[in-house]
Amino acid sequence: MVSRFGDALRTTALPLLAVQLTDDPLVIASVTACGYVPWLLFGLLGGAVADRVDQRRAMWAVDLVRGLLVAGFALAVGLGHASIPLVLALAFSLTALQTLFDNAATALLPNLVDRAALGSANARLMSGQQLAGGLLAGPFVPLLLTVGAAMPFVADASTYLLAAALIASLRLRPPEREPRPAGSTLRAEIGEGLRALWRDRALRAVCVATLLCNIGMGALIATLVLHVTRWLHAGDAEYAAAMTVYAAGSLAGGLVAQRIARRVGRVRALLFGGTVQVVSLLVMGTVRHLGALLGGMLLLGLMNMVWNVNQVTLMQQRSPETMFGRIASAFRTASTSGAPLGAVLGGAVAHAYGLNAPALLGALLFALAVTSLIPASKADVPVVAPDDDATTAHVTR
């Protein structure tokens, strides 16, 4: 939660810094794209490593390195040496390290709580991250920027270092693992994770749908600063407000994600969330008013949390214990690959058709995601465990 607070400061401040360095929408969108590309290069490797190592140690070591990197970037900004290449390098490096951190965190949670409690645990964890990283952090960005352009990054570096110290102080017994077969390689273990994901019909469908959603969100988020400051003619404070409203919606989503899943099942909860997001994006892309943007961002945040909680829980519940990291990394790498594509696509669409076009593109892609997910909601989706909740209907075997 501590490092998420700093992440939100940096995520909000970095596009604002990029806008000061260039007016090209495609270049600005590339900043977001460089924050996702490492998942394509290192995501699968991070999952395989997470299944091999002590996940707690991996997490605090990664946060320590990220803290030092952001501290160096803050120094460069403070000395007036900020540049687009430096911004791109920072975004790339932090995400490369995040591939190990996130996979280790996803693999660690099922070893701490019962599988039946994973939905509630994920909802509380993600809600706490949103509270610290979005709702509380967003309003601080304009205040920090009044002190200096480097201050959001100084705060981000401090939170990484504090998070590393907190994680290192935990006293957890490493999970017991069976010895790996003789001659087992990272490449072979990565292949096992990919095959396990592909064989599970529900996870495969959710992965494809999440890929499409991430293309749409990548297009929107990469150009949101332009949507707010140029298309709506608002200011930096309104951009920060949009990010804060999104975080508030996410926090509310954490409170209802489990309730929706219990009523309709996890896959159908995804269908519901995706449909609401289609409507939200259509409103944002057609109504040229700050209120429409804030309302749309609120609903996007709420339903994005419903999606994330149920998607991650479904994956954890359907994965063998010894393969949590690899299946999570295979899922996340496949689905996250859409974000850099969406970021670049969003910049190109905004340049060619107008600054509201990325929101409309996002609505189209979310509609395709909902459509692709429909087969997985049918009653013949196999249930792996009694508490799986993948579907509420009877299963045909």
Rank of each mutant, 00 (worst) to 15 (best):
L131T: 11
L143I: 15
M126V: 12
D54P: 09
A89V: 09
D54E: 15
G72H: 04
W60F: 15
Q129M: 12
N111Y: 15
S93F: 10
R66I: 00
A107I: 06
S83K: 09
W60S: 00
A117R: 12
A82C: 07
R57V: 12
L100E: 00
A104G: 01
T95R: 01
S83T: 14
G119W: 10
A137P: 10
G78E: 02
A74M: 06
P139S: 07
A121T: 08
V65F: 07
P110Q: 14
I84E: 08
L125R: 11
Q130L: 08
L100T: 01
G128W: 05
F73W: 13
L94G: 02
A121P: 03
Q98C: 00
L94F: 07
L79V: 09
L131N: 01
L144Y: 12
G119F: 07
A91S: 10
L100Q: 03
R66N: 08
A104F: 06
W60T: 09
F73T: 04
A137F: 14
L68R: 00
L143A: 15
A89F: 14
L131I: 14
A58M: 14
F101E: 09
V113A: 13
L79H: 13
R56G: 07
M126F: 12
A61L: 15
A71F: 07
G119Q: 13
R66V: 00
L144G: 11
L136W: 03
L108C: 01
L100G: 00
G67H: 05
T106S: 03
L69S: 03
